[in-house]
Amino acid sequence: MKKEVPLAITFISGFLLIVALFIPHEPFGSLQERFNDWYIIVSGFTLILGVDSLILYHWRKIKRKEKEAPYSIILISTFVIVLAWGIYSGVKYGNPFAPASSFLRYFYTYMFVPLQATMFSLLAFFIASAAYRAFRARGLNATLLLISAGIVMLGRVPKGEEAAPYFIGITLILLAIVSVLEGVSRVEVYEKIIFFGLAVVSIIAIFPAAWFLKFNLPRLADWVMNVPQLGAKRGLFIGIWLGAIAMAIRIILGIERTYLK
């Protein structure tokens, strides 16, 4: 019974929600909304469990006098202060987040928002380090990624198309220098021909490539985003949603039971 009852509830709920998708007539029409309301009520109660877990976790650290105990003291005291302050503002203004509430003005605006912004802004540095690793042209795939990322970035930033000719010019000159150096160091004649040929092609391509990018870069960037990128994304979406349907059917039929004790 410990497993059968939850499985039956899952089956009935899942089946009803599928039916509700196709029948707008009441009582099915508003079923999803009603189920969502129930979920919000249940999750509201579990928040108490969450807070209990958080406080206990940090209380244990303080009790054991662990190295991080001072942080736990800060967390618990902040929790108590914010809760008390919120209740006070709620009673005084009818809403803890009322514009006149000092709770909103001081804590939320001057502490919470800047802390959130700080964490979010870290993303810029993390993107730079991750991009450096991803864009190192170690193979064909990484090189393609580097080229397409370069096109999209230059095509989307202000003055990108003006900078693009210089950018591609410098890149091709560097490629020509590297090819000449590689060609000199090679022993086999055919390898020398390939690298010197590549250097010549790079030099010849500078002006046509610069001219093409100057007038077509934003269009090229849009093409990368709207055709290959969107196509790949849609392919992923189809796979993801089919997987989700299969998973949902496994859950409804009781094949997938990980969520059960």
Binding site: F126, A130, R133, A244
Partner: peptide, 23 residues
């Protein structure tokens, strides 16, 4: 299955379960 976050995971982690592989 968050398509916008997959490139970040592919760049920064050793193995990535892409979309349906997770399911």
């Amino acid at each position: 299955t968050a398509v916008t976050q997959l490139p970040f995971f592919i760049a920064a982690t050793d193995y990535t379960l892409i979309g349906e592989e997770m399911y």
